[in-house]
Design a protein around this nucleic acid. Sequence first.
DNA 1: TTTGTCCTAAATATCTTATCAAAGGGATTG
DNA 2: CAATCCCTTTGATAAGATATTTAGGACAAA
Lengths: 258, 258
Amino acid sequence: MQKAPDAEGGGLAQMVGPAERLWSSGKQTTLSASVIDQIRTVLFAGRLAPGDRLGSEASLALQFGVSRMTMRDALRSLQASGVIEVKVGIKGGIFVAEGNSERLAETIAIQLKLIGISTEELLDTQIAIEVMAAGLAASNATSIDIKALHEALGEAERLIDDAEEFTWAAINFHGCVVAASHNRVLAAQFRALSHVLMPLYVRGSSPEVARRAVAFQRALIACIEAREPDAARNLVYGRLQFVKSRQLGDLAKGEAGD
Amino acid sequence: MQKAPDAEGGGLAQMVGPAERLWSSGKQTTLSASVIDQIRTVLFAGRLAPGDRLGSEASLALQFGVSRMTMRDALRSLQASGVIEVKVGIKGGIFVAEGNSERLAETIAIQLKLIGISTEELLDTQIAIEVMAAGLAASNATSIDIKALHEALGEAERLIDDAEEFTWAAINFHGCVVAASHNRVLAAQFRALSHVLMPLYVRGSSPEVARRAVAFQRALIACIEAREPDAARNLVYGRLQFVKSRQLGDLAKGEAGD
DNA sequence: TTTGTCCTAAATATCTTATCAAAGGGATTG
DNA sequence: CAATCCCTTTGATAAGATATTTAGGACAAA
């Protein structure tokens, strides 16, 4: 309604005002960076919603007064950072992206790897995420969530003697807890951390460890069903602190052995 | 052999094996996507370290058997996701990126906005991050960190009557706490959340609110200096739960008023 | 007449080739 | 030691060929 139906000539480029420069770092060194900046600014001013069509490559290039290749450069960057989606075909063109929390998790995981985060930093962050998630799960879990938790627990119990498979099942259980919190930020962060932490957990597994884990899971489900957030928080905090100290200990031993 | 044997270290493209496909989603629809996939795979196989030079646009295009513009498309995507860095000039070319936690924070913030995360989800995540950070700060803070905390507190006290400026100072104090945790993952997530939560806090400020905030800050510094992680965690948890309930209350009133 | 399938046409991104401009670093020269 | 020139590399433009997707029409079958 705010947008002219024949939008193409309307002027995305004209929607960029001097105000509300949330991300712009002032002078841009390259043309495509400037275009990226302008489009991002428009998006964050809230005047465009996910799914809106911005136009075709060619029409956007015209609007911004750059060549098609420069426009492509800019669009590729925006696409990679998940701001837009590109479709080919007669109904194709450039669209504002739907938020994609899977992409968010992937991006976080990539950066964690590149920054070279230490194991301890990762484990501490995981503790932060899961403690909060457990508390929220105890407050917010639906009957469907609780059913999923029981199923995940049953799966883990069945695989208690298969170290690798059990690890996957245990992580799945933790994922169900986070899902039951109904907080998508926590969920995305948990997925990103899982990507990076997976190898660690697979290594440190054993039937005895698995039995302790199952006991913990059973206790946590009880807290959630009883709607006791504080108990759930304390339980998860204690458990993960224990896991952390064991992981860091194993790590030291493992590296000493190498 | 179209490939110059001595050029650029002899074959990024050849480093891609059939194994260890961490991110590849199977068949790729476009050429540039396939190139992106291959480079990412090589990077995550751990055979390349941040700062390594991959070659020039032209030489990479040769290695992968695509045109320079297609290569540019791929490189632009990788650059946007923070995997590589591009430098111009005679010693320029494509380099494996140093991890950039500022970029991480920015990407997270963009996605949060696009996904349309609710205020409650954001506040809960902030609580998770800051509670853990406060505990770690009480364990890990150096004398430099503590000095920074005192300075941030002093700054906040001076600005107690200027709502907007005080909000900035308060967020800076919280940032100092997170920095004192010496956990870069928590730090990046805190920055991302701050970007998005800033407008909320600016709105709900007043001198009375500021006085309560300063009292809290003083108490928290005491906990950190006394090396009492549990006390610090409980203090921050209680404080942020209070802030959350006030924010959500204000939000409801604000929206009802609109 | 209605329905379903196939085919064509148009719009669109993808990819190629070619060319020039700008920037950065090193070597040469005064 | 400083200024200048030169080479390499990315930044940007242009024009065109190719692949892909969808709309809509044509045609055949029920």
